[in-house]
Design a protein around this nucleic acid. Sequence first.
DNA 1: TTTCTTTATGTATATCTTGACATATAAAAC
DNA 2: GTTTTATATGTCAAGATATACATAAAGAAA
Lengths: 188, 188
Amino acid sequence: MGRAGVSTLGFATLGLLAGESLSGYDVKLRMAEPVGFFWQAGHSQIYPELAKLEAGGMVVHNDVPQSGKPDKKIYEITAEGLSAVKEWVSEPAKSAPTRDEATLKAYLSWLGEPGEMAAMFRELGRRHEKQMERYLETEAWMRSEWGEPKRFERRRFANYAALKRGVGFEREYAQWCRWVSEKLESSG
Amino acid sequence: MGRAGVSTLGFATLGLLAGESLSGYDVKLRMAEPVGFFWQAGHSQIYPELAKLEAGGMVVHNDVPQSGKPDKKIYEITAEGLSAVKEWVSEPAKSAPTRDEATLKAYLSWLGEPGEMAAMFRELGRRHEKQMERYLETEAWMRSEWGEPKRFERRRFANYAALKRGVGFEREYAQWCRWVSEKLESSG
DNA sequence: TTTCTTTATGTATATCTTGACATATAAAAC
DNA sequence: GTTTTATATGTCAAGATATACATAAAGAAA
């Protein structure tokens, strides 16, 4: 956890709410799609997290009655929440590599049948390549929609920067997978 | 968890024990240094994990009495454990990107002061560059000690492949950090 | 018309992970 | 001589995460 007992997921949520007020369900949707590429959480984490943030005075909610369905809770960030996330965002980011099962499998690849290992890494490489292409499509969309990246305003640049990381990550990963599978093939 | 209720940490441990019999403490040391770059665990996870693996028949131990100190438990992989890890290693690796706090901070960078954000990413880039250099030193050592990578036997190649991933990862990460910090600087 | 998906919000359980607590000796550094 | 580090093995509690359980209605698809 970061400052004042707020976890990284808490700050991710605050960051989303800093841009717009959202229901728990909307937070969940954003956690799945753009944010989910670098920080995932299911709704079973998000709803309790929002309650915890509210208990800590970081957000407040107002109920929007719905016909039949349960009330929609629209969460809004407080001044306290906004200053907390603003402080957190420029603090040193901790830990980057952490856990990567594929690298572990590469390290232990001598235990497997070379042909099977090669196939596994080839398939993994394809998956990362596809993900890279999806990111590149989004990047193309941004350029066509927002113009020259040089002139992006801060919020769009932030979006673009995260995407750029995704592209670089997937490209490097796919290359490595291809290299591993080729070497395993030629040796087996 | 993977097959037969063995977690990824369990397979990492089995993988180490497939190469040599080790005490829990030795596993801990390897989990810190070479394996720790892509899969970390403290001793408080390792000792119970070894007990669990033993309960599942994947490993066995014999006590080596020490003068004064508690008995050293040397763990040995069983035939069952070996076949389990051999099966696991060529199964598709799941999930790669998962959680990266720095990318999250980039995505929310519009909330921070540009100068401070730039400094944070500059420093982060330096850290990744240093890590890359450490990996490159190890790579140089491997080449000088083991000769041409082309002719590495399987176990050494596996070691080299994991290291290669580390180098690529850190290089790409450092480049991205530098790019982010430069853009933030020129805009602020 | 029936089934599936989306909207909408939660709880419960199990496991994973981290950090602290706990003990004990030998060897090396200061 | 005293302190710190390395060896050596554990437990415990708190927090994070994943998966399943649970409900309910609107709308789209079959």
